[in-house]
Computed example of a mutant assay.
Amino acid sequence: MAEEIRLNTAELGEKAASLRAGQRVLLSGTCYTSRDAAHKRITEMLLRGEKPPYPLKNAAVYYAGPTPTPEGLAIGSCGPTTSGRMDPYTPRLLDLGLKCMIGKGKRSPEVVEAIKRNSAVYLCATGGAGALAARCIVKAEVIAFEDLGCESVKRLELRDFPLIVGIDSLGGSILV
């Protein structure tokens, strides 16, 4: 069995380019939830010359819309959503410094080219395992677009979140 790579999101700027498709990663640190409705709003903000709700430089974004938080937990079930829905917005965000995306499913050729161009990485989370994924989220806070409910933008603190490198910075991919 391949060794798991322990990685902190603060290291993504320097280490994303060294990850290879198929490697297993235990990710810790700060990331942000953002799905299609939030991506659309962020793109509109950028078009107006406004700052996005989180810094894009070397950031990690998790394509997820967590369920309501049960008493005593940091977050509800928090599984990945289909990443392809963010593809129309993703190349621009990568060009502005986004370093890591977490989700499930294939990406468009335009996104793969933007990943390569920006030495970024796409990490895959296990679909259907949102309750288990939530165990690796130690803190969650809504930071933008609260009106979107579960699709609001949240700042998450991860601890050993299990992922697989789906597409690496060279365009290598486990996705068929």
Rank of each mutant, 00 (worst) to 15 (best):
residue 74 A to V: 08
residue 58 N to F: 02
residue 102 I to W: 06
residue 97 G to N: 07
residue 94 L to V: 01
residue 96 L to C: 10
residue 107 R to P: 05
residue 64 A to P: 04
residue 104 K to D: 06
residue 123 L to G: 01
residue 141 E to R: 12
residue 104 K to Q: 06
residue 142 V to R: 11
residue 103 G to P: 03
residue 74 A to D: 08
residue 107 R to N: 09
residue 80 P to H: 04
residue 89 Y to E: 05
residue 135 R to D: 12
residue 103 G to H: 01
residue 81 T to P: 10
residue 105 G to V: 03
residue 77 S to N: 10
residue 96 L to T: 10
residue 144 A to R: 14
residue 103 G to W: 00
residue 137 I to F: 04
residue 73 L to F: 14
residue 104 K to T: 07
residue 136 C to W: 12
residue 68 P to V: 05
residue 89 Y to C: 03
residue 82 T to P: 09
residue 91 P to R: 09
residue 87 D to M: 11
residue 140 A to R: 13
residue 69 T to Y: 06
residue 146 E to N: 15
residue 123 L to I: 05
residue 69 T to L: 05
residue 126 T to G: 08
residue 81 T to F: 09
residue 112 V to R: 00
residue 123 L to C: 04
residue 95 D to F: 15
residue 129 A to W: 07
residue 82 T to Q: 10
residue 90 T to L: 14
residue 101 M to G: 14
residue 63 Y to W: 03
residue 99 K to T: 04
residue 80 P to I: 02
residue 144 A to C: 14
residue 129 A to V: 09
residue 110 E to K: 14
residue 79 G to R: 09
residue 86 M to N: 06
residue 117 R to H: 07
residue 91 P to T: 09
residue 114 A to V: 05
residue 82 T to H: 10
residue 79 G to F: 09
residue 135 R to C: 15
residue 92 R to M: 14
residue 118 N to G: 06
residue 115 I to D: 00
residue 99 K to E: 02
residue 82 T to A: 13
residue 73 L to A: 15
residue 98 L to M: 11
residue 63 Y to G: 03
residue 84 G to K: 15
residue 86 M to C: 08
residue 97 G to K: 04
residue 65 G to K: 00
residue 136 C to Q: 13
residue 122 Y to C: 01
residue 67 T to C: 14
residue 139 K to C: 09
residue 85 R to E: 03
residue 60 A to I: 03
residue 88 P to N: 08
residue 67 T to V: 13
residue 78 C to S: 15
residue 106 K to P: 08
residue 60 A to N: 04
residue 99 K to P: 05
